[in-house]
Structures are given as C-alpha cells and as structure tokens.
C-alpha cells in the first residue's frame, strides 16, 4: 500500500502511522451536547468502501494527513494536509493521484 503525502509524494505505507477515523479531527465545541461528545469519543463507522482516516507521516515530513481510501479495494483515493494550506511550495492537488473514486461494490 502506498500513500501520496501532499508534501512528499507517493510513499510506502511503512513511513506512516495510523491514528484512526478522520472524526478525531472534528472536535465538538466545549458546550456541545453530551451526545456529540459521546459520538466523537466512542462511535465510529466501519464501512466496506470509502473511508477517511488520519495518518501521521512519522518517517517523513511529520505532517498529519487525512487519507480517503477504499477498504474493499485498498485503493488510496486522496490525501490532504490537516494543518492549513501549506504555503511553502507545490500544491497538494497537483501531485495527488488522479484516480477515479471506486464505487466500492466491486471488490477484488
């Protein structure tokens, strides 16, 4: 499995650390109802198909990225930096793989 880091380009999976669902980056407001906090802390989808999750490029540029991938086909569809638009160089979009999103139903 290879992940296209928006800063470093296509890299082997061994350079990344998996954190969990992208929901972790969408923290509820401090005064949000308990249901929102319950969902944020404990409830996760487990889709057969497209999913978004957080990865840390630990052996690379040390950026946190959100990766959209397909759990059925193992295709990595896109990745974006979590911390703001990076202003120091090549744009993320220009080097991302331009694969068509997979419907997820076809499997192997």
């Amino acid at each position: 499995m290879r992940i296209t880091c928006p800063l470093c380009g296509s890299r082997d999976r061994r350079e990344f650390h998996y954190y969990g669902g992208a929901v972790y980056a969408e923290r509820p407001a401090a005064d949000a109802p308990p249901e929102a906090w319950d969902g944020y802390l404990h409830l996760r989808d487990n889709p057969a198909g497209e999913t978004r999750d957080l990865w840390y490029h630990e052996l690379g540029c040390s950026a946190w990225i959100e990766v959209t991938r397909n759990t059925v086909t193992h295709a990595v569809l896109s990745a974006r930096l979590l911390a703001g638009p990076e202003r120091q160089g090549r744009s993320a979009r220009s080097i991302l793989t331009k694969k068509k999103p997979n419907s997820g139903g076809k499997g192997r």
Binding site: C8, C61, Q88, G89, R90
Partner: peptide
C-alpha cells in the same frame, strides 16, 4: 545569506 526558504523536497 544567499540562500532562501526551500520548497518541500528541495
């Protein structure tokens, strides 16, 4: 200093 801020990967 005759250098500059490098782009990612440079």
């Amino acid at each position: 200093l005759g250098l500059g801020w490098p782009r990612p990967g440079r």
